[in-house]
């Protein structure tokens, strides 16, 4: 416990580790997108057939809850997946405490969420994580295709939000220990995005664009 609480760890996580994290996250993401597009250029049938209009339609239909048939077929899943994914992207960006950190370091800040909204949204993200874990354990179809890495992804997100929430209310562990854990999991998550299947964050747009272009040729909808 002493190490977790130590100021040295805090200084490391808030100092050099933040730089390393953001460099890996940004450079890695650009690299992943760049290599995918470069590879696609080598295939004769991918880029010439991309239909931007169909792609935009398809993105919108799958980014709006209940706008596609499969979202309507699975109402619980859709609710949780949208609360989870919007939460995991927007809560960290617009959280007051994170904004304060940006302001402290670089003197910049932007619009923030009120504390209640942020709390409720975080709880939804945590419930979403638990829902995903439950699905992976109890739904036989999903259980059959689940590998350990799938659990690891969900647990990283779960711990990031859980520790953040607990640190804010200073429950269970001493504040600094919880905070250190929170920063650590957050950094692991950001590093994992370009290195693992969490790249679906960007690849969503590419794979959807490709399928939408194909279905536009067949004159059918892919939502």
């Amino acid at each position: 416990m002493g190490f977790l609480e130590s100021v040295a760890l805090y200084n490391f996580l808030r100092g050099p580790m933040v730089w390393i994290t953001f460099i890996i996250f940004i450079v890695g993401s650009i690299y992943r997108i760049y290599t995918l597009i470069n590879l696609a250029k080598k295939e004769k049938v991918v880029l010439p057939f991309i239909n931007i209009k169909a792609a935009i339609k398809s993105w919108l239909h799958w980014l709006i809850p209940f706008a596609s048939r499969n979202w309507r077929l699975k109402p619980y899943f859709t609710t949780f997946t949208f609360l989870f994914h919007t939460g995991i992207v927007f809560v960290p960006i617009f959280l007051y405490a994170h904004n304060a950190l940006w302001y402290e370091s670089w003197g910049i800040s932007w619009w923030t969420l009120s504390e209640t909204v942020a709390d409720v949204w975080s709880i939804f993200v945590i419930i979403g994580c638990l829902f995903f874990i439950g699905r992976r354990i109890f739904d036989p179809t999903v259980r059959f295709v689940t590998s350990y890495s799938d659990f690891v992804f969900v647990f990283i997100c779960l711990f990031t939000f859980l520790t953040g929430f607990l640190a804010h209310y200073q429950w269970i562990l001493p504040y600094r220990a919880m905070l250190n854990l929170h920063i650590m999991f957050g950094e692991i998550m950001l590093i994992a995005i370009p290195l693992t299947r969490l790249t679906h964050m960007y690849y969503f747009f590419f794979t959807r664009a490709w399928m939408a272009s194909q279905t536009a040729i067949w004159k059918i909808k892919d939502w």
């Binding site: 398809s58 799958w62 048939r69 499969n70 679906h200 690849y203 969503f204 794979t207 959807r208 490709w210 399928m211 939408a212 194909q214 279905t215 059918i220 909808k221 892919d222 939502w223």
Partner: peptide, 8 residues
């Protein structure tokens, strides 16, 4: 058509 990512 049912895949959220439209994977082929």
């Amino acid at each position: 058509l049912y895949c959220p990512f439209g994977l082929d």
